Amino acid sequence: MSENSFYVLLGPDGSGKSSVMGELKRRLPDFRFASTDDMFVDEEHGLIRQLRAHVEQDVLPRLGQDYSFDFLVSLLQTAVVYLRDRTSPAGGQESLIMDSYYYKILAKCRLGGMEDNPLFSWWRSFPQPRAVIYLDASPESAWLRLRSGRGVNPLESTDTRSGHLGFGTYQKKLKKLMLEEVRHLPLVTIEEQPSTVSAADRVMEVLAA
């Protein structure tokens, strides 16, 4: 797949990207979809599912205690390269929608205080999409969508003990850094929608345009 021949769906935690991608997958059988979310990872890439599960269950709860942020970044690097590899053509299907790409991971690493890791320059050299579609959501709505913060981890909140306040503060900072990372690209923002279907409708309009 050549540069600029795919789209990235970006948004804060709890914006509903996975649900929207699921709806788009139903509507767009000729498109490929790339994500580290289990529902989009093929059987032959089961290692990605396992890695994500171990990061969420083992590393994040003990981040800063048993595991350093450097260690976490080394694991996230695997996910980033996996997504980059999905930009190569497969079976003649050239159209691809990708969940977040490296932009969200990089923004979260920066929020964790990692500004100068040499990996980041490499990530930024990866093929760039035709456009970024930003699926916006207020921290309040996202908090509710995440079952009132149940299971929120240190990469989603400034303080997991502070409830929606820490989550909201983190998400505002995350949005700023994500938009900073994609400022060189065509960007379409889809304001918060009342349902997954209406959000998918708006994305379809962007793709058609």
Rank of each mutant, 00 (worst) to 15 (best):
D58E: 06
D58L: 00
D58I: 01
L60H: 08
L60S: 07
R62T: 04
R62I: 00
R62E: 11
L63Q: 14
Q65F: 03
Y67W: 12
S68D: 03
S68I: 03
F69N: 09
F71P: 00
V73N: 12
S74Y: 09
L75V: 11
L76I: 00
Y82K: 12
Y82R: 11
L83M: 15
R86A: 10
T87I: 09
S88W: 11
G91L: 06
G91F: 07
Q93Y: 07
Q93L: 12
Q93K: 15
Q93A: 14
E94S: 11
E94T: 12
E94R: 11
E94Q: 12
L96P: 03
M98T: 01
M98Y: 00
M98V: 07
D99T: 05
S100H: 12
Y102S: 01
Y103N: 06
K104I: 04
I105H: 12
C109G: 04
R110V: 10
G113E: 05
M114F: 08
M114E: 14
P118G: 05
P118W: 02
P118R: 02
L119R: 05
L119V: 03
W122I: 15
W122V: 15
W123L: 05
W123Y: 14
S125G: 13
S125M: 09
F126T: 10
F126D: 10
F126C: 11
Q128F: 00
Q128N: 01
P129V: 02
V132Y: 11
Y134H: 06
Y134T: 01
Y134I: 01
Y134V: 00
A137V: 10
A137M: 03
A137E: 01
S138V: 00
S138N: 01
P139D: 13
E140H: 09
S141E: 13
A142I: 03
L144N: 02
R145Q: 07
R145D: 09
R145H: 08
R147M: 12
R147Q: 15
G151H: 09
V152W: 03
N153I: 03
P154H: 10
P154R: 10
T158L: 14
D159R: 11
T160Y: 05
T160F: 06
S162I: 00
S162C: 05
S162W: 01
G163R: 06
G163W: 06
G163M: 07
H164F: 09
L165I: 01
F167V: 05
F167E: 04
G168I: 02
T169F: 04
Y170K: 07
Y170W: 15
K173I: 00
K173M: 14
K175C: 04
K175D: 02
K176A: 15
K176I: 13
M178S: 06
